[in-house]
Design a protein around this nucleic acid. Structure first.
Length: 482
RNA sequence: GGUCCCUUCGUCUAGUGGUUAGGACGCCAGAUUUUCAUUCUGGAAACAGGAGUUCAAUUCUCCUAGGGAUCGCCA
Protein backbone atom coordinates (compact mmCIF):
# COMPACT_ATOMS: atom_id res chain seq x y z
CA UNK A 1 0.00 0.00 0.00
CA UNK A 2 1.09 3.49 -0.77
CA UNK A 3 1.97 6.08 1.78
CA UNK A 4 1.97 9.04 -0.53
CA UNK A 5 -1.26 10.87 -0.07
CA UNK A 6 -0.91 13.72 -2.51
CA UNK A 7 -3.04 13.58 -5.62
CA UNK A 8 -3.23 15.72 -8.70
CA UNK A 9 -5.99 17.74 -7.08
CA UNK A 10 -8.73 17.49 -9.64
CA UNK A 11 -12.07 19.16 -9.02
CA UNK A 12 -13.60 16.15 -7.35
CA UNK A 13 -11.81 13.69 -5.09
CA UNK A 14 -13.81 11.17 -3.12
CA UNK A 15 -12.75 8.17 -1.15
CA UNK A 16 -14.12 4.97 0.26
CA UNK A 17 -12.61 4.36 3.67
CA UNK A 18 -13.64 1.02 5.14
CA UNK A 19 -12.22 -0.32 8.35
CA UNK A 20 -10.83 -3.79 7.76
CA UNK A 21 -12.64 -5.61 10.52
CA UNK A 22 -14.68 -7.88 8.29
CA UNK A 23 -15.99 -8.40 4.80
CA UNK A 24 -17.48 -5.72 2.59
CA UNK A 25 -21.10 -5.60 3.64
CA UNK A 26 -24.03 -4.29 1.66
CA UNK A 27 -24.04 -0.86 3.27
CA UNK A 28 -20.34 -0.38 2.67
CA UNK A 29 -20.80 -1.54 -0.90
CA UNK A 30 -23.43 1.11 -1.48
CA UNK A 31 -21.26 3.80 0.07
CA UNK A 32 -18.46 2.74 -2.23
CA UNK A 33 -20.86 2.77 -5.16
CA UNK A 34 -22.06 6.29 -4.42
CA UNK A 35 -18.50 7.53 -4.15
CA UNK A 36 -17.46 5.75 -7.30
CA UNK A 37 -20.47 6.99 -9.23
CA UNK A 38 -19.90 10.55 -8.18
CA UNK A 39 -16.24 10.45 -9.12
CA UNK A 40 -17.01 8.90 -12.49
CA UNK A 41 -19.91 11.28 -13.06
CA UNK A 42 -17.77 14.31 -12.39
CA UNK A 43 -14.57 13.08 -13.92
CA UNK A 44 -12.98 13.06 -10.50
CA UNK A 45 -10.95 10.57 -8.53
CA UNK A 46 -12.15 7.68 -6.45
CA UNK A 47 -9.63 6.72 -3.82
CA UNK A 48 -9.53 3.73 -1.51
CA UNK A 49 -8.19 4.10 1.99
CA UNK A 50 -8.03 1.30 4.48
CA UNK A 51 -8.71 2.61 7.99
CA UNK A 52 -6.34 0.28 9.76
CA UNK A 53 -5.37 2.57 12.62
CA UNK A 54 -6.51 0.04 15.16
CA UNK A 55 -3.84 -2.59 14.85
CA UNK A 56 -5.59 -5.04 17.09
CA UNK A 57 -8.77 -5.20 15.05
CA UNK A 58 -7.23 -5.00 11.66
CA UNK A 59 -6.82 -8.21 9.70
CA UNK A 60 -5.21 -8.74 6.30
CA UNK A 61 -8.01 -11.16 5.39
CA UNK A 62 -10.51 -8.38 5.80
CA UNK A 63 -8.52 -6.12 3.53
CA UNK A 64 -8.49 -8.85 0.91
CA UNK A 65 -12.21 -9.44 1.31
CA UNK A 66 -12.98 -5.76 0.85
CA UNK A 67 -10.77 -5.44 -2.18
CA UNK A 68 -12.20 -8.61 -3.73
CA UNK A 69 -15.69 -7.31 -3.10
CA UNK A 70 -14.98 -4.01 -4.79
CA UNK A 71 -13.35 -5.74 -7.71
CA UNK A 72 -16.27 -8.06 -8.18
CA UNK A 73 -18.67 -5.12 -8.05
CA UNK A 74 -16.43 -3.55 -10.67
CA UNK A 75 -15.83 -0.41 -8.66
CA UNK A 76 -12.31 0.45 -9.66
CA UNK A 77 -10.39 2.94 -7.59
CA UNK A 78 -7.67 5.30 -8.72
CA UNK A 79 -4.11 4.58 -7.70
CA UNK A 80 -3.06 2.23 -4.95
CA UNK A 81 -5.08 1.69 -1.79
CA UNK A 82 -3.85 3.87 1.06
CA UNK A 83 -3.05 2.55 4.47
CA UNK A 84 -4.12 4.93 7.18
CA UNK A 85 -1.75 3.35 9.65
CA UNK A 86 1.17 4.12 7.37
CA UNK A 87 0.46 7.80 7.81
CA UNK A 88 0.50 7.82 11.61
CA UNK A 89 3.50 10.08 11.77
CA UNK A 90 1.64 12.80 9.87
CA UNK A 91 -1.27 12.46 12.24
CA UNK A 92 1.04 13.00 15.20
CA UNK A 93 2.48 16.06 13.55
CA UNK A 94 -0.97 17.52 13.18
CA UNK A 95 -1.64 16.92 16.85
CA UNK A 96 1.66 18.62 17.71
CA UNK A 97 0.60 21.58 15.60
CA UNK A 98 -2.65 21.78 17.49
CA UNK A 99 -0.82 21.58 20.79
CA UNK A 100 1.37 24.42 19.58
CA UNK A 101 -1.46 26.66 18.49
CA UNK A 102 -3.46 26.02 21.62
CA UNK A 103 -6.36 24.12 20.08
CA UNK A 104 -5.37 20.93 21.85
CA UNK A 105 -4.01 20.05 25.29
CA UNK A 106 -2.40 17.22 27.17
CA UNK A 107 -4.80 15.53 29.52
CA UNK A 108 -3.41 13.45 32.38
CA UNK A 109 -6.70 11.93 33.47
CA UNK A 110 -6.27 8.18 33.55
CA UNK A 111 -8.57 5.79 31.77
CA UNK A 112 -9.66 4.34 35.10
CA UNK A 113 -10.55 7.73 36.49
CA UNK A 114 -12.57 8.45 33.40
CA UNK A 115 -14.34 5.12 33.48
CA UNK A 116 -15.28 5.70 37.09
CA UNK A 117 -16.66 9.13 36.28
CA UNK A 118 -18.63 7.69 33.41
CA UNK A 119 -20.09 4.93 35.52
CA UNK A 120 -21.24 7.24 38.29
CA UNK A 121 -22.74 9.60 35.78
CA UNK A 122 -24.66 6.74 34.27
CA UNK A 123 -25.77 5.51 37.65
CA UNK A 124 -27.09 8.96 38.47
CA UNK A 125 -28.73 9.10 35.05
CA UNK A 126 -26.69 12.15 34.30
CA UNK A 127 -25.23 12.65 30.91
CA UNK A 128 -21.50 12.40 30.93
CA UNK A 129 -19.47 15.08 29.23
CA UNK A 130 -15.75 15.01 29.69
CA UNK A 131 -14.61 18.09 31.52
CA UNK A 132 -10.91 17.70 31.99
CA UNK A 133 -9.19 19.76 34.65
CA UNK A 134 -6.19 19.86 32.34
CA UNK A 135 -7.98 21.81 29.67
CA UNK A 136 -7.02 25.16 31.08
CA UNK A 137 -4.33 24.16 33.52
CA UNK A 138 -0.84 25.48 33.10
CA UNK A 139 1.21 22.80 31.32
CA UNK A 140 3.98 23.55 33.81
CA UNK A 141 1.94 21.77 36.46
CA UNK A 142 1.99 18.58 34.48
CA UNK A 143 3.11 15.58 36.50
CA UNK A 144 6.34 13.99 35.39
CA UNK A 145 6.44 10.48 33.98
CA UNK A 146 2.67 10.27 33.77
CA UNK A 147 1.00 9.09 30.60
CA UNK A 148 -1.27 11.57 28.92
CA UNK A 149 -3.58 11.81 25.97
CA UNK A 150 -3.89 14.79 23.66
CA UNK A 151 -7.40 16.16 23.54
CA UNK A 152 -9.05 18.65 21.28
CA UNK A 153 -9.92 21.88 23.05
CA UNK A 154 -13.33 22.06 21.48
CA UNK A 155 -15.56 25.12 21.78
CA UNK A 156 -17.91 25.02 24.76
CA UNK A 157 -20.68 27.22 23.50
CA UNK A 158 -22.31 28.03 20.24
CA UNK A 159 -22.95 25.31 17.74
CA UNK A 160 -21.19 23.52 14.96
CA UNK A 161 -22.89 23.44 11.61
CA UNK A 162 -22.62 20.53 9.25
CA UNK A 163 -23.77 21.71 5.85
CA UNK A 164 -24.64 18.39 4.33
CA UNK A 165 -25.59 17.73 0.71
CA UNK A 166 -27.95 14.94 1.64
CA UNK A 167 -29.08 15.86 5.14
CA UNK A 168 -29.30 19.61 4.74
CA UNK A 169 -27.96 21.96 7.38
CA UNK A 170 -27.61 20.16 10.68
CA UNK A 171 -26.19 21.90 13.69
CA UNK A 172 -24.99 20.44 16.94
CA UNK A 173 -24.73 22.27 20.25
CA UNK A 174 -21.06 22.50 21.07
CA UNK A 175 -21.86 21.82 24.69
CA UNK A 176 -22.64 18.25 23.65
CA UNK A 177 -19.42 17.76 21.76
CA UNK A 178 -16.74 17.09 24.34
CA UNK A 179 -12.97 17.18 24.09
CA UNK A 180 -12.26 14.12 22.06
CA UNK A 181 -8.94 12.33 22.16
CA UNK A 182 -6.60 13.06 19.29
CA UNK A 183 -3.60 11.06 20.43
CA UNK A 184 -3.85 8.07 22.71
CA UNK A 185 -1.56 7.69 25.69
CA UNK A 186 0.69 5.50 23.56
CA UNK A 187 0.98 8.37 21.11
CA UNK A 188 -1.09 6.74 18.39
CA UNK A 189 -3.67 8.85 16.56
CA UNK A 190 -7.38 8.19 16.90
CA UNK A 191 -9.88 7.81 14.10
CA UNK A 192 -11.23 11.34 13.98
CA UNK A 193 -7.78 12.92 13.79
CA UNK A 194 -6.54 10.44 11.24
CA UNK A 195 -9.55 10.89 9.00
CA UNK A 196 -9.23 14.65 8.98
CA UNK A 197 -5.51 14.64 8.27
CA UNK A 198 -5.77 11.99 5.58
CA UNK A 199 -8.75 13.55 3.85
CA UNK A 200 -6.92 16.86 3.86
CA UNK A 201 -3.66 15.40 2.63
CA UNK A 202 -5.46 13.44 -0.07
CA UNK A 203 -7.24 16.58 -1.21
CA UNK A 204 -10.58 14.93 -0.67
CA UNK A 205 -13.29 17.33 -1.75
CA UNK A 206 -16.42 15.34 -0.86
CA UNK A 207 -16.79 13.03 2.09
CA UNK A 208 -19.53 10.57 1.23
CA UNK A 209 -20.40 8.01 3.91
CA UNK A 210 -23.27 6.67 6.02
CA UNK A 211 -25.28 8.95 8.34
CA UNK A 212 -23.87 7.08 11.26
CA UNK A 213 -20.93 9.43 10.78
CA UNK A 214 -22.97 12.62 11.02
CA UNK A 215 -21.84 13.53 14.52
CA UNK A 216 -18.31 12.68 13.50
CA UNK A 217 -18.69 15.32 10.82
CA UNK A 218 -19.32 17.88 13.53
CA UNK A 219 -16.33 16.73 15.53
CA UNK A 220 -14.17 16.57 12.47
CA UNK A 221 -15.27 20.05 11.47
CA UNK A 222 -13.84 21.29 14.74
CA UNK A 223 -10.56 19.57 14.02
CA UNK A 224 -10.44 21.11 10.55
CA UNK A 225 -11.00 24.50 12.11
CA UNK A 226 -8.35 23.94 14.75
CA UNK A 227 -5.92 23.04 12.02
CA UNK A 228 -6.96 26.00 9.90
CA UNK A 229 -8.05 23.79 7.02
CA UNK A 230 -11.06 23.92 4.74
CA UNK A 231 -13.89 21.55 5.56
CA UNK A 232 -14.82 19.19 2.70
CA UNK A 233 -18.34 18.87 1.34
CA UNK A 234 -20.27 16.45 3.51
CA UNK A 235 -22.66 13.91 2.10
CA UNK A 236 -24.17 11.58 4.66
CA UNK A 237 -26.35 8.98 3.05
CA UNK A 238 -29.14 7.12 4.87
CA UNK A 239 -28.46 3.63 6.12
CA UNK A 240 -29.73 0.35 4.80
CA UNK A 241 -31.74 -1.71 7.24
CA UNK A 242 -32.57 -5.38 7.21
CA UNK A 243 -35.94 -6.64 5.94
CA UNK A 244 -37.28 -6.32 9.49
CA UNK A 245 -36.37 -2.67 9.73
CA UNK A 246 -33.64 -3.23 12.26
CA UNK A 247 -30.11 -2.21 11.71
CA UNK A 248 -28.37 -4.34 9.16
CA UNK A 249 -25.93 -6.12 11.37
CA UNK A 250 -24.14 -9.40 11.09
CA UNK A 251 -26.93 -10.98 13.06
CA UNK A 252 -29.54 -9.67 10.67
CA UNK A 253 -28.32 -11.22 7.50
CA UNK A 254 -25.91 -8.45 6.60
CA UNK A 255 -24.19 -10.72 4.23
CA UNK A 256 -20.87 -9.86 2.75
CA UNK A 257 -20.93 -8.89 -0.86
CA UNK A 258 -19.35 -12.22 -1.79
CA UNK A 259 -22.48 -13.99 -0.58
CA UNK A 260 -24.47 -12.28 -3.30
CA UNK A 261 -21.94 -13.34 -5.83
CA UNK A 262 -22.20 -16.93 -4.65
CA UNK A 263 -25.99 -16.68 -4.83
CA UNK A 264 -25.71 -15.94 -8.51
CA UNK A 265 -26.32 -12.22 -8.64
CA UNK A 266 -24.73 -10.10 -11.34
CA UNK A 267 -22.66 -7.10 -10.24
CA UNK A 268 -24.55 -4.85 -12.62
CA UNK A 269 -27.86 -5.91 -11.07
CA UNK A 270 -26.56 -5.39 -7.56
CA UNK A 271 -25.31 -1.95 -8.48
CA UNK A 272 -28.65 -1.06 -9.98
CA UNK A 273 -30.49 -2.33 -6.91
CA UNK A 274 -28.16 -0.70 -4.43
CA UNK A 275 -28.19 2.71 -6.05
CA UNK A 276 -31.98 2.82 -5.81
CA UNK A 277 -31.75 2.40 -2.05
CA UNK A 278 -31.56 6.03 -1.01
CA UNK A 279 -31.22 7.54 -4.44
CA UNK A 280 -33.70 8.03 -7.22
CA UNK A 281 -34.05 9.60 -10.60
CA UNK A 282 -37.77 10.11 -11.13
CA UNK A 283 -39.54 6.86 -11.89
CA UNK A 284 -36.53 5.17 -13.40
CA UNK A 285 -35.90 1.68 -12.11
CA UNK A 286 -33.70 -0.17 -14.54
CA UNK A 287 -30.67 1.99 -14.97
CA UNK A 288 -27.55 0.59 -16.58
CA UNK A 289 -24.34 1.74 -14.97
CA UNK A 290 -23.41 3.87 -17.94
CA UNK A 291 -26.64 5.80 -17.50
CA UNK A 292 -26.10 5.95 -13.75
CA UNK A 293 -22.80 7.67 -14.29
CA UNK A 294 -24.52 10.25 -16.41
CA UNK A 295 -27.33 10.86 -13.94
CA UNK A 296 -25.81 10.41 -10.53
CA UNK A 297 -25.67 13.40 -8.25
CA UNK A 298 -26.33 14.04 -4.59
CA UNK A 299 -29.58 15.89 -5.17
CA UNK A 300 -31.23 12.55 -5.78
CA UNK A 301 -30.16 11.21 -2.40
CA UNK A 302 -32.95 10.90 0.17
CA UNK A 303 -32.85 11.04 3.94
CA UNK A 304 -34.85 8.09 5.15
CA UNK A 305 -33.40 4.65 5.68
CA UNK A 306 -34.29 1.81 3.32
CA UNK A 307 -34.90 -1.85 3.87
CA UNK A 308 -33.15 -4.50 1.91
CA UNK A 309 -35.52 -6.47 -0.29
CA UNK A 310 -34.11 -9.56 -1.95
CA UNK A 311 -37.22 -10.07 -4.08
CA UNK A 312 -36.62 -6.85 -5.92
CA UNK A 313 -32.93 -7.53 -6.28
CA UNK A 314 -33.84 -10.93 -7.72
CA UNK A 315 -36.22 -9.42 -10.21
CA UNK A 316 -33.61 -6.93 -11.33
CA UNK A 317 -31.09 -9.73 -11.58
CA UNK A 318 -33.45 -11.66 -13.84
CA UNK A 319 -33.67 -8.65 -16.08
CA UNK A 320 -29.91 -8.29 -16.35
CA UNK A 321 -29.52 -12.00 -16.99
CA UNK A 322 -32.09 -11.93 -19.79
CA UNK A 323 -30.30 -9.06 -21.41
CA UNK A 324 -26.78 -10.33 -20.91
CA UNK A 325 -24.59 -11.65 -23.67
CA UNK A 326 -24.73 -15.44 -23.99
CA UNK A 327 -20.99 -16.04 -23.99
CA UNK A 328 -20.62 -13.70 -21.04
CA UNK A 329 -23.19 -15.71 -19.12
CA UNK A 330 -21.33 -18.92 -19.86
CA UNK A 331 -18.21 -17.33 -18.48
CA UNK A 332 -20.03 -16.19 -15.36
CA UNK A 333 -21.53 -19.61 -14.79
CA UNK A 334 -18.05 -21.02 -14.90
CA UNK A 335 -16.86 -18.39 -12.42
CA UNK A 336 -19.55 -19.38 -9.99
CA UNK A 337 -18.78 -23.07 -10.26
CA UNK A 338 -15.24 -22.26 -9.23
CA UNK A 339 -16.42 -20.67 -6.01
CA UNK A 340 -15.76 -22.82 -2.95
CA UNK A 341 -19.20 -21.83 -1.64
CA UNK A 342 -20.87 -23.53 -4.58
CA UNK A 343 -21.51 -27.08 -3.60
CA UNK A 344 -21.06 -29.45 -6.49
CA UNK A 345 -19.32 -26.79 -8.50
CA UNK A 346 -16.20 -28.85 -9.05
CA UNK A 347 -18.21 -31.78 -10.31
CA UNK A 348 -19.98 -29.57 -12.82
CA UNK A 349 -16.75 -27.96 -13.83
CA UNK A 350 -15.27 -31.38 -14.55
CA UNK A 351 -18.08 -32.06 -17.01
CA UNK A 352 -17.89 -28.66 -18.60
CA UNK A 353 -15.67 -29.64 -21.50
CA UNK A 354 -15.69 -27.95 -24.89
CA UNK A 355 -18.67 -30.00 -26.03
CA UNK A 356 -20.84 -29.20 -23.06
CA UNK A 357 -19.77 -25.61 -23.11
CA UNK A 358 -20.85 -25.35 -26.71
CA UNK A 359 -24.23 -26.82 -25.83
CA UNK A 360 -24.54 -24.46 -22.89
CA UNK A 361 -23.85 -21.51 -25.12
CA UNK A 362 -26.32 -22.70 -27.73
CA UNK A 363 -29.00 -23.17 -25.08
CA UNK A 364 -28.37 -19.85 -23.41
CA UNK A 365 -31.11 -17.88 -25.18
CA UNK A 366 -33.71 -20.30 -23.85
CA UNK A 367 -32.05 -20.73 -20.49
CA UNK A 368 -31.51 -17.10 -19.58
CA UNK A 369 -35.12 -16.27 -20.30
CA UNK A 370 -36.11 -18.48 -17.42
CA UNK A 371 -33.54 -17.82 -14.72
CA UNK A 372 -33.37 -15.07 -12.14
CA UNK A 373 -30.00 -16.01 -10.75
CA UNK A 374 -26.93 -17.67 -12.18
CA UNK A 375 -27.46 -20.51 -9.74
CA UNK A 376 -30.96 -21.09 -11.05
CA UNK A 377 -29.60 -20.88 -14.55
CA UNK A 378 -27.01 -23.55 -13.92
CA UNK A 379 -29.60 -25.74 -12.23
CA UNK A 380 -31.89 -25.43 -15.20
CA UNK A 381 -29.07 -26.49 -17.50
CA UNK A 382 -28.54 -29.73 -15.62
CA UNK A 383 -29.84 -31.78 -18.56
CA UNK A 384 -26.86 -30.62 -20.59
CA UNK A 385 -24.47 -32.01 -18.01
CA UNK A 386 -26.41 -35.19 -17.41
CA UNK A 387 -25.34 -38.55 -18.73
CA UNK A 388 -27.59 -41.43 -19.72
CA UNK A 389 -29.42 -43.01 -18.23
CA UNK A 390 -31.11 -39.89 -16.90
CA UNK A 391 -32.64 -39.58 -13.50
CA UNK A 392 -36.13 -38.15 -13.30
CA UNK A 393 -37.76 -35.84 -10.86
CA UNK A 394 -41.21 -36.60 -9.53
CA UNK A 395 -43.15 -34.68 -12.12
CA UNK A 396 -41.14 -36.08 -14.99
CA UNK A 397 -41.60 -39.53 -13.66
CA UNK A 398 -45.32 -39.04 -13.59
CA UNK A 399 -45.36 -37.73 -17.13
CA UNK A 400 -43.67 -40.85 -18.39
CA UNK A 401 -46.52 -43.28 -17.93
CA UNK A 402 -47.21 -46.28 -20.12
CA UNK A 403 -49.16 -44.45 -22.82
CA UNK A 404 -46.56 -41.70 -22.95
CA UNK A 405 -43.82 -44.24 -23.37
CA UNK A 406 -45.72 -45.91 -26.17
CA UNK A 407 -46.19 -42.56 -27.87
CA UNK A 408 -42.51 -41.81 -27.41
CA UNK A 409 -41.69 -45.09 -29.09
CA UNK A 410 -43.61 -44.30 -32.24
CA UNK A 411 -42.41 -40.75 -32.18
CA UNK A 412 -38.76 -41.65 -31.90
CA UNK A 413 -39.10 -44.07 -34.79
CA UNK A 414 -40.51 -41.22 -36.79
CA UNK A 415 -37.81 -38.82 -35.70
CA UNK A 416 -35.10 -41.26 -36.56
CA UNK A 417 -36.12 -40.99 -40.20
CA UNK A 418 -35.71 -37.21 -40.18
CA UNK A 419 -32.93 -35.84 -42.40
CA UNK A 420 -32.65 -32.42 -40.85
CA UNK A 421 -32.23 -32.06 -37.14
CA UNK A 422 -33.22 -28.47 -36.56
CA UNK A 423 -35.79 -27.04 -34.17
CA UNK A 424 -38.05 -26.14 -37.07
CA UNK A 425 -37.91 -29.55 -38.69
CA UNK A 426 -38.33 -31.23 -35.33
CA UNK A 427 -41.31 -29.12 -34.45
CA UNK A 428 -42.98 -29.84 -37.73
CA UNK A 429 -42.40 -33.54 -37.36
CA UNK A 430 -43.79 -33.61 -33.86
CA UNK A 431 -46.78 -31.49 -34.78
CA UNK A 432 -47.58 -33.76 -37.67
CA UNK A 433 -47.23 -36.76 -35.42
CA UNK A 434 -49.58 -35.18 -32.89
CA UNK A 435 -52.16 -34.45 -35.53
CA UNK A 436 -52.02 -37.94 -36.99
CA UNK A 437 -52.34 -39.62 -33.66
CA UNK A 438 -54.98 -37.14 -32.59
CA UNK A 439 -52.95 -35.93 -29.62
CA UNK A 440 -52.74 -32.38 -28.35
CA UNK A 441 -49.25 -31.05 -28.76
CA UNK A 442 -48.82 -30.64 -25.02
CA UNK A 443 -49.73 -34.27 -24.53
CA UNK A 444 -46.67 -35.38 -26.43
CA UNK A 445 -44.39 -32.42 -25.77
CA UNK A 446 -44.37 -32.89 -22.01
CA UNK A 447 -43.35 -36.56 -22.03
CA UNK A 448 -40.82 -35.62 -24.67
CA UNK A 449 -39.41 -32.95 -22.38
CA UNK A 450 -39.35 -35.35 -19.47
CA UNK A 451 -37.51 -38.02 -21.43
CA UNK A 452 -35.03 -35.49 -22.75
CA UNK A 453 -34.32 -33.49 -19.61
CA UNK A 454 -35.50 -35.51 -16.67
CA UNK A 455 -37.72 -32.64 -15.59
CA UNK A 456 -41.02 -31.06 -16.51
CA UNK A 457 -39.51 -27.64 -17.09
CA UNK A 458 -37.04 -26.60 -19.73
CA UNK A 459 -36.52 -24.32 -22.69
CA UNK A 460 -38.66 -25.21 -25.73
CA UNK A 461 -38.29 -28.96 -26.33
CA UNK A 462 -37.40 -28.61 -29.97
CA UNK A 463 -34.51 -26.38 -29.08
CA UNK A 464 -33.46 -28.87 -26.45
CA UNK A 465 -33.51 -31.67 -28.96
CA UNK A 466 -31.52 -29.69 -31.47
CA UNK A 467 -28.86 -28.74 -28.97
CA UNK A 468 -28.57 -32.24 -27.61
CA UNK A 469 -27.95 -33.49 -31.11
CA UNK A 470 -29.54 -36.32 -32.98
CA UNK A 471 -27.73 -39.22 -31.36
CA UNK A 472 -28.04 -38.12 -27.77
CA UNK A 473 -31.65 -36.99 -28.15
CA UNK A 474 -32.71 -40.19 -29.84
CA UNK A 475 -30.87 -42.27 -27.28
CA UNK A 476 -32.61 -40.50 -24.44
CA UNK A 477 -35.96 -41.07 -26.14
CA UNK A 478 -35.23 -44.73 -26.68
CA UNK A 479 -34.33 -45.06 -23.02
CA UNK A 480 -37.90 -44.10 -22.23
CA UNK A 481 -39.68 -45.84 -25.07
CA UNK A 482 -41.83 -48.81 -24.31
C1' G B 1 -31.36 9.68 29.02
C1' G B 2 -28.71 13.98 25.84
C1' U B 3 -28.04 15.33 20.73
C1' C B 4 -29.38 14.63 15.67
C1' C B 5 -32.29 12.49 11.73
C1' C B 6 -36.49 10.00 9.57
C1' U B 7 -42.10 8.79 8.60
C1' U B 8 -46.26 8.39 0.89
C1' C B 9 -49.14 1.21 -0.95
C1' G B 10 -46.08 -4.89 2.52
C1' U B 11 -41.06 -3.04 0.26
C1' C B 12 -38.09 0.69 -2.84
C1' U B 13 -39.69 5.33 -4.32
C1' A B 14 -42.00 9.79 -7.62
C1' G B 15 -44.74 13.93 -6.61
C1' U B 16 -47.24 19.01 -6.01
C1' G B 17 -50.34 24.41 -1.90
C1' G B 18 -55.72 22.46 -5.87
C1' U B 19 -53.44 15.27 -9.14
C1' U B 20 -58.50 9.96 -10.18
C1' A B 21 -51.49 10.65 -5.24
C1' G B 22 -47.66 8.05 -10.26
C1' G B 23 -43.95 4.05 -11.08
C1' A B 24 -41.27 -0.50 -9.63
C1' C B 25 -40.96 -5.22 -6.76
C1' G B 26 -44.22 -8.52 -4.45
C1' C B 27 -49.43 -10.30 -4.44
C1' C B 28 -54.22 -11.54 -7.16
C1' A B 29 -56.88 -12.25 -11.92
C1' G B 30 -56.74 -12.73 -17.20
C1' A B 31 -54.38 -13.11 -22.32
C1' U B 32 -50.36 -15.44 -25.15
C1' U B 33 -47.76 -20.30 -24.87
C1' U B 34 -45.37 -27.37 -25.99
C1' U B 35 -43.72 -26.82 -19.80
C1' C B 36 -41.77 -23.02 -17.00
C1' A B 37 -40.41 -18.29 -17.70
C1' U B 38 -40.79 -14.01 -20.64
C1' U B 39 -44.28 -10.55 -22.60
C1' C B 40 -49.04 -8.05 -22.36
C1' U B 41 -53.73 -6.47 -19.84
C1' G B 42 -56.35 -5.56 -15.44
C1' G B 43 -56.92 -5.48 -9.91
C1' A B 44 -56.29 -4.85 -4.51
C1' A B 45 -52.77 -1.76 -1.85
C1' A B 46 -50.14 4.42 0.92
C1' C B 47 -49.69 10.33 2.29
C1' A B 48 -48.41 7.80 11.02
C1' G B 49 -51.89 10.83 14.40
C1' G B 50 -53.41 15.72 16.15
C1' A B 51 -53.49 21.02 15.96
C1' G B 52 -52.42 25.40 13.21
C1' U B 53 -51.50 28.63 8.58
C1' U B 54 -54.56 28.92 4.08
C1' C B 55 -60.15 29.63 0.02
C1' A B 56 -57.41 24.90 -0.26
C1' A B 57 -52.96 20.85 2.66
C1' U B 58 -49.88 14.67 1.31
C1' U B 59 -47.04 19.26 0.38
C1' C B 60 -45.76 24.82 5.09
C1' U B 61 -45.41 25.24 10.92
C1' C B 62 -45.87 23.05 15.74
C1' C B 63 -46.94 18.92 18.94
C1' U B 64 -47.49 13.62 19.76
C1' A B 65 -46.38 8.71 18.50
C1' G B 66 -43.22 5.31 16.17
C1' G B 67 -38.43 4.24 14.00
C1' G B 68 -33.21 5.13 13.37
C1' A B 69 -28.21 7.14 14.31
C1' U B 70 -24.76 8.67 17.88
C1' C B 71 -22.81 9.59 22.74
C1' G B 72 -15.00 4.84 23.63
C1' C B 73 -7.62 5.91 24.63
C1' C B 74 -13.35 1.38 18.00
C1' A B 75 -13.47 2.89 13.24
Amino acid sequence: MSNSLKTANPAVVVRFAPSPTGYLHIGGARTALFNWLYARAKGGKFLLRIEDTDRARHTPEAVTAIIDGLKWLELDWDGEPFSQFANAERHREAAEAMLANGTAYKCYLSKDELDAMRTTAEAEKRRFIIDSPWRDRDPAQAPANTPFVVRLKSPTDGETLVADKAQGDVSFPNADLDDLILLRSDGSPTYNLAVVVDDHDMDVTHVVRGVDHLTNAARQSQIYQALGWDVPVWVHVPLIHGPDGAKLSKRHGALGIEAYRADGFLPEALRNYLVRLGWSHGDDEIIPTIQLIEWFDFDGVGKSPARFDVAKLTDLNGHYIRHADDAELVRRCRDIMELPEYEGGVALLAKLDAGVEEKLLASMPGLKERAKTLIALIDSAAYLFAERPLTFDKKADKLLDETAKADLKSLSDRLEALDTWTPEALEEAVRTFAEETDLKLGKIAQPLRAALTGTSVSPPVFDVMAVLGRDEALARLKDQSA
